[in-house]
Design a protein around this nucleic acid. Structure first.
Length: 449
RNA sequence: GGGUAGGUGGCAGAGCGGCUAUGCACGGGACUGCAGAUCCCGACUAUUGGGGUUCGAAUCCCCACCUACCCUCCA
């Protein structure tokens, strides 16, 4: 399959060697707050990428870091008076919880930055030894200009950057471009011992320390949102390639577009965010996934009420079909396999999820239009839904005691036959309160939820 | 100022040289005890502007304009 690689700014074919594992690292969140929909957007995408690679029988190791020490976490401590442990525990638990509900369950391992302090220290030491880093009063810094490729990922001309435009320049640094590898402790900050005194790691070094621990100096896919290209990912390249001298750090750099609100990026600092928790109160996780996956991953997505409501409707339509065929036996045959193949084929082309969704919805529409279906046809549809679900995670399927529900349904239909609509409606209304909807059709009555 | 992505119907958003998606919204109908959902039909028939390449361009090239993102922490 092809994927758009940021470094080469072109489509690259993902090469896999027989029996060799594919390693993917995606930048996880800083757990200073509850995850918002912007995070959901990014991680839903990488989840689908991971699911699809595995669907193709590629052995994939999907690693994600959790940034549990960083300036904003410290700010949060100061603002709220809460302890560091309390903040990261509650927010990371919430992150894992909502990722689970969103069906983002393809990550093999979550690595907390502070579990890799010794690896971080080792990398910083190597950089100092190689002349790429130096110590000053408040920390250890990387000599960005010494790494001649600095800027290659973001295509930046270092002399034309707006240095210090909005941030105070530390005059003690050799060059304003130099970035922190280790920050020395200030009063009240969490810290770890190091050769440079008590302190904490810089942001960029956390990731290279983690990826080197798991993957060594080189690996396959590195993902994250676009805002991380510079300076974060740029600096990762500078650190790891300077240490290992083994280029390239990463074969495929994939960057996702943002989730916007009124065309402006949803972000913690702008306070224009909607938490995933809030969104899940009103919408199915499948609806959120459909919304996110309805556009190309590299484009910006506008988050507005209408878009999610639309997606919710779509998710419900899929669910209706799902419940119509659910009691049938799964039928895997050539025709069904062809359909699945057609639906998933666009993913080969730079993970074109919108095309896949379009194909899938076409299939759903055609299937719903069939007035009389044989058991075999139902079984085929069930197979298609199953396979698509494996990759996309957009088929809503909350478990319910199906059989006991059938009893309720049959009783209600007897009441309807007798003309006791009052009682029949009462049943329908009560079930609706439970989130279960009844659909009466010429073919019979169905429940869905 | 530099860099990176884009600019498609009422809205959202695919397509990336010829076949003009899809969803929502809109109009009409079918089904139904009602409701919801579903289905059928219809209308709208678009590609920022200006040049160019081509038999043919939303799709390729050039220029202009506009937008977002990055150069501060950020998914």
């Amino acid at each position: 399959m092809d994927v758009r690689d940021t470094l080469s700014a072109s489509l690259k074919k993902i090469e896999t060697r027989e029996g060799k594992r594919l390693n993917m690292f995606v930048c996880g969140p800083t757990v200073q707050d509850k995850p918002h929909m912007g995070h959901a957007r990014t991680y839903v995408f990488y989840d689908v990428l991971a699911r699809y690679l595995r669907y193709k029988k590629i052995r994939l190791f999907y690693l994600m870091n959790i940034t549990d020490i960083e300036d904003h976490i410290i700010t949060k401590m100061q603002e709220t008076g809460r302890s560091w442990e309390d903040i990261i525990d509650s927010n990371s638990s919430e992150f894992f919880r909502v990722m689970g509900i969103l069906k983002n369950n393809s990550v093999n391992y979550y690595a907390f930055a502070t579990d890799y302090i010794s690896e971080i220290i080792a990398q910083v030491s190597k950089l100092i030894k190689k002349g790429y880093a130096y110590e000053i009063a408040d920390g250890v810094y990387y000599r960005a200009r010494k790494f001649k490729d600095y800027g290659k990922l973001s295509k930046q001309n270092l002399d034309q950057l707006m240095i210090g435009a909005r941030v105070e320049v530390n005059e003690e640094k050799e060059d304003p471009l130099d970035f922190a590898l280790w920050k020395k402790k200030k009063e009240g900050e969490p810290s770890w011992p190091s050769p440079w005194g008590e302190g904490r790691p810089g942001w960029h070094i956390e990731d290279t320390a983690i990826t080197e621990s798991f993957f060594g100096p080189n690996y396959d896919i590195h993902g994250g949102a676009k805002d991380l290209i510079f300076p974060h990912h740029e600096s990762e390249i500078a650190q790891m390639e300077a240490i290992s001298r083994k280029k390239p750090l990463v074969k495929y750099w994939i960057h996702t577009g943002h989730l916007n609100v009124d065309d402006i990026k949803m972000s913690k600092s702008l306070k224009n965010f909607v938490t995933v928790e809030e969104a899940l109160k009103n919408y199915w996780p499948e609806a959120i996934r459909i919304m996110m996956l309805s556009m190309r991953y590299n484009a910006a997505v506008n988050f507005d009420e209408k878009a999610v409501v639309d997606a919710q409707g779509t998710a419900e339509r899929i669910s209706i079909l799902q419940h119509r065929v659910n009691s049938s036996k799964l039928t895997k045959n050539e025709r069904a396999e062809e359909v699945v193949k057609r639906i998933l084929a666009p993913l080969e082309n730079d993970v074109n999820t919108p095309e896949t969704i379009k194909e899938f919805l076409g299939f759903v529409k055609d299937s719903l239009a069939k007035s009389k279906m044989t058991e075999e046809e139902k079984g085929e549809i069930k197979y298609v839904l199953n396979e698509v679900e494996k990759v996309m995670g957009i088929v809503h399927n909350a478990p319910l005691p199906e059989r006991s529900m059938d009893i309720v349904l049959n009783l209600r239909n007897e009441l309807r036959k007798k003309g006791d609509y009052g009682s029949a409606d009462k049943i329908r209304d009560s079930l609706k309160d439970e989130g279960i909807k009844i659909e009466d059709t010429a073919e019979g009555s169905y429940l869905w939820w």
